[in-house]
Amino acid sequence: MIAALAFYLFAAILIASAVMVVTARNPVHSVLFLILAFFNAAALFLIAGAEFLAMILVIVYVGAVAVLFLFVVMMLDIDFARLREGFQRYAPIGAIIGGILFLELLLVLSGWSFADQADDLRLSPNPGASVTNAAALGRILYTDYVYLFQLAGLILLVAMIGAIVLTHRERAGTKRQDIAVQVARSGSVVLEEVPVGAGIKALGIRRPPEPEAEPPKVTHDAHHGGHH
């Protein structure tokens, strides 16, 4: 009874927030509703006994994906009012495509026949009472499905290489840390004993001696030479 009530509560909030994701005028609100939808979906997984999936949903989707969305939405200057301008014009076509998809789904569902054991299997994500959800997943993921698991790892590696290849470049004018230079620096860095409790008012701000008296001329020349 309580489980059923909880199910309907979470499901109702999930659907309502999903609708709000699409209809909210403010994109930041959309993303916040998306996070609410993820949380409710995670709760539904918990009710079904799949606590590992529930935790993954919260950690990965809420923790990483949705926050990333939020950053992108806040940082990009997108005029959403202009994006919505075409809505009236494209609505009929969208409705037609949606209708066709709906008919196809009906066609599929009408031909569906459930196996006799399907009802029992539906809510038993655990193989036995003594094995936890995550352990059960791990057992098949690292044995029967190890090939696919490793392949997925390779795909992620390719994604990483691709992102680096396409975006990382050496730009002129960027400043990089050169540890050898830092270590070799002497004279300009000194330890001084300062009276305890004197504070900045009494001592003033101490700056390192400016070493720019001579070098600028040299670097300027070198710079010039590099251009020609």
Partner: peptide, 22 residues
Amino acid sequence: LSLYLGLELLSLPLYVIAAFNR
């Protein structure tokens, strides 16, 4: 499943090298 993962492992590098001259 291995069909799909193989297909993705093929496609992802192809997307990258198509845009290689960035």
